[in-house]
Design a protein around this nucleic acid. Structure first.
Length: 690
DNA sequence: AGCACGCCGACT
DNA sequence: GTCGGCGTGCTC
């Protein structure tokens, strides 16, 4: 082994946004290191060369001084340390590591996911592409009378003051030199800000005296039974108390819509309130990131990517709507925000609340097992204020009945449950459904804005057809989507709109109610049309979804609740009607235990994708993998053709591992598949199995 | 992932 | 001849 002189360099590991279960070694010359103001390297953002391009990485580990390069590869030197301090502390790195480990996701990709978009720079064709300019120039507006400025300088000052704020890059493109800008900055006529721009003075809200002192102890709690608005009030009290001690809070929501609603309500009460999510400009998010690192007593509302911001004095976290399956991300890193937050709790030991009107089955189980403590004694409780009626569902009768009900002009919310116009097109003669050419699934029919067909998987749009391509028979639409309900109602009523449009109409339509708990609007009557299909989907959470769908729609009704269903004998409906919610949870847990479903067994879903995938070959490969890794008692189901057996022209096969613990072996399988050109998607604790 | 290299079949 | 699809190998 050839040794190099390593006295002049510091060596460290860098996590890069690449799909490998490894970090990469880079070095920095001591000469450059000595010039750094902040000597802390761990958690810091680095720009590194990689092959012919370059990536943004995070330093995760410093090598000992005795580290020496080996012949296998040449360690390259980093190009730049763009920030003046680390982006993450060691605690956040630990949390990200645990998340990536649990979900068998590459560490570098996991960490990269939590870096704000504005700081993810890439090198292409020798040039670093930055998401937005690094520095901005703006005028301060103080020019002393005796100040002598050149013509060019005067021009620059004029331009900047007319624009208010302009990126330095833009000024240089306009032909101004760095020296011109620098000299004016030195004189204090212009000001330069890196990343952060003119600080708008946030008007501080006048603080009313706190009604009562609400505090939460350290630990994990469950907060249920109250509706979303009341829950936000409770948090407001807790947050304000914490702010007086300089402590910060983090509120996590399952969607941007939730955050917006919560912000409307909380911003009237709370100072130092921040919002961070993908819908906000990259620049604004970067600013939020750096401010939260410094400011005491701040409050952050976020969804997924903001949970790892190293917020100063963080001591309180809320996971709102904890039952929302959208907390599980769809792309790599495939992780569950609820579990990620649990990892934060383990690392930081603070107060953590999981919250929902009624708990998820998993949360109920955790409460029973004493892992989570209910904040209130009666955590399972719904106010029964509206009368309940249910009618059987069939296409003809239900639509007629609907018209009859709506005739009295009461303010009504209709939950149509299905989007689009119809679920698919069907030929009554040859019994064919019109399928997507790439994915082999029926195409959804859209009609409202424009007539077209769309694949719900690959989103390919097709022109509408009216006759069967095989036999020319006129096609029929099957299923009642929200657009069909709307079309039908419009023949009889004019005051109709969608709930999200926030228009003032008597009849409102929506596809789903599960994410609308924060909708403050009240409805005299709520009609839920045929939520039954939740029960027919091959999904271990089907019944739970059905149950929640009914409960969430029910609580929006002030006086009358109407349910069109053919499942009125199901345990979930009976538990709801008999006001014994607990019955549903007990029953559902029994079923899950009996059928080896989560939370009793842990699942890992493996999805294999390739053009022309051979299932027999895959079976062979799987068995060899078990043998080679000496895996014992591997319980699994499969390999079966995926529920969507063809996606985007690729064949799919799936395999369900039950209570499988050896994550290392999974990495080996992933590597093996990659070499064979098979894409393996590892989904630990999938929220649905289809 | 993303890119270079090399093999092979189709087509000017 | 040569263009391009895709299987393979490699990345500090």
């Amino acid at each position: 082994m050839k040794k190099y002189n390593n006295n002049q360099f510091i060596y460290f590991e860098v996590a890069l946004p690449l799909p490998f279960y490894q970090t990469f070694t880079y070095k920095l010359s001591l000469e450059k290191y000595d010039k750094l103001k902040n000597k802390k390297l761990i958690g810091r953002r680095v720009l590194v060369p990689f092959r012919k391009s370059g990536y943004t990485g995070i330093i995760t580990e410093i090598h000992k001084e005795s580290f020496s390069e080996i012949e296998d590869y040449e360690v390259k030197e980093i190009e730049e340390l763009p920030d003046d301090k680390p982006l993450f502390t060691e605690k956040e790195l630990n949390i990200a590591y645990k998340i990536s480990d649990y979900y068998v996701a590459p560490f570098g990709l996991t960490l990269y996911y939590f870096i704000p978009e504005g700081l993810r720079w890439k090198k292409k064709e020798g040039k670093w592409i930055k998401t937005f300019p690094e520095s901005y120039i703006y005028g301060v507006g103080k020019i002393k009378n005796d100040e002598k400025l050149s013509e060019r300088q005067k021009e620059l000052v004029e331009l900047v003051s007319s624009l208010g704020e302009v990126s330095e890059l833009e000024l240089i493109e306009q032909g101004f030199t760095k020296t011109t800008i620098n000299s004016l900055v030195k004189k204090g006529i212009l000001k330069r800000e890196n990343f952060i721009f003119k600080k708008e003075e946030k008007t501080q809200l006048k603080q009313k005296k706190l009604e009562k002192t609400v505090k939460v102890k350290k630990g994990i709690f469950y907060y249920g039974a109250d509706e979303a608005e009341k829950r936000l009030k409770t948090y407001t009290n807790i947050i304000k108390n914490l702010q007086e001690e300089g402590k910060s809070s983090l509120l996590v929501f399952p969607s941007i819509a939730h955050i917006k609603k919560a912000y409307e309500i909380l911003s009237k009460e709370i100072n130092n309130l921040y919002v961070y999510h993908d819908g906000i400009s990259a620049r604004e998010n970067v600013k939020t990131w750096f401010e939260l690192q410094e400011k005491e007593g701040s409050v952050l509302l976020t969804s997924y990517s903001g949970i790892l911001i190293p917020i100063k004095n963080l001591s309180f976290i809320v996971v709102e709507e904890e039952a929302a399956d959208s907390y599980k991300t769809l792309r790599t890193p495939k992780f569950d925000v609820r579990r990620a937050i649990f990892e934060i709790y383990k690392e930081k030991k603070l107060s953590l609340i999981y919250s929902s009107l009624v708990p998820s089955v998993e949360s109920f189980y955790s409460i029973e097992k004493n892992i989570v403590k209910p904040l209130k004694e009666n955590f399972l409780n719904v106010k029964y204020k509206a009368n309940i009626k249910n009618y059987p569902f069939d296409k003809e009768f239900s639509l007629k009945k609907l018209i009859e009900i709506l005739k009295d002009n009461k303010k009504t919310l209709i939950i149509a449950n299905k989007k689009a116009y119809a679920s698919f097109l069907y030929c009554p003669r040859c019994e064919n459904e019109i399928l997507c050419q790439n994915c082999d699934v029926p195409l959804k029919v859209y009609k409202k804005e424009k007539e077209y067909l769309e694949c719900s998987i690959c989103k390919t749009k097709y022109e509408t057809i009216t006759r069967c391509p095989e036999c020319e028979t006129p096609l029929e639409t099957v299923g009642i989507g929200i657009e069909k309900v709307e079309e039908y109602l419009k023949k009889y009523f004019s005051s109709i709109s969608y709930l999200h449009e926030e228009k003032d109409t008597n009849i409102k339509l929506t596809t789903t109610i599960l994410d609308k708990d924060l909708t403050t609007e009240n409805f005299e009557r709520v009609i839920n049309i045929y939520p039954d299909f939740f029960l027919f989907v091959q999904d271990f959470k089907g019944r739970e979804k059905f149950f929640r769908n009914i409960l969430y729609s029910y609580i929006k009704a002030e006086k009358e609740f109407i349910l069109f269903t053919n499942q009125s004998n199901d345990v979930s409906i009976k538990a709801f009607l008999n006001k014994k919610l607990e019955k549903f949870y007990k029953d559902e847990l029994n079923i899950r235990e009996k059928f080896n479903y989560p939370p009793f067994k842990r699942y890992i879903l493996l999805t294999f994708e390739k053009k022309n995938l051979d299932i027999n070959f895959l079976n062979e490969l799987f068995k060899i993998w078990i043998k080679e890794n000496k895996l014992k008692n591997v319980k699994y189901k499969g390999i079966f053709k995926g529920y969507h057996s063809k996606v985007k022209g690729k064949e799919r096969a799936q395999l369900l591992l039950i209570d499988f613990k050896n994550k290392q072996a999974l990495k080996i399988l992933h590597e093996k598949c990659r070499k064979l050109g098979i894409k393996l998607i590892i989904d630990v604790d999938p929220v649905q199995i289809i």
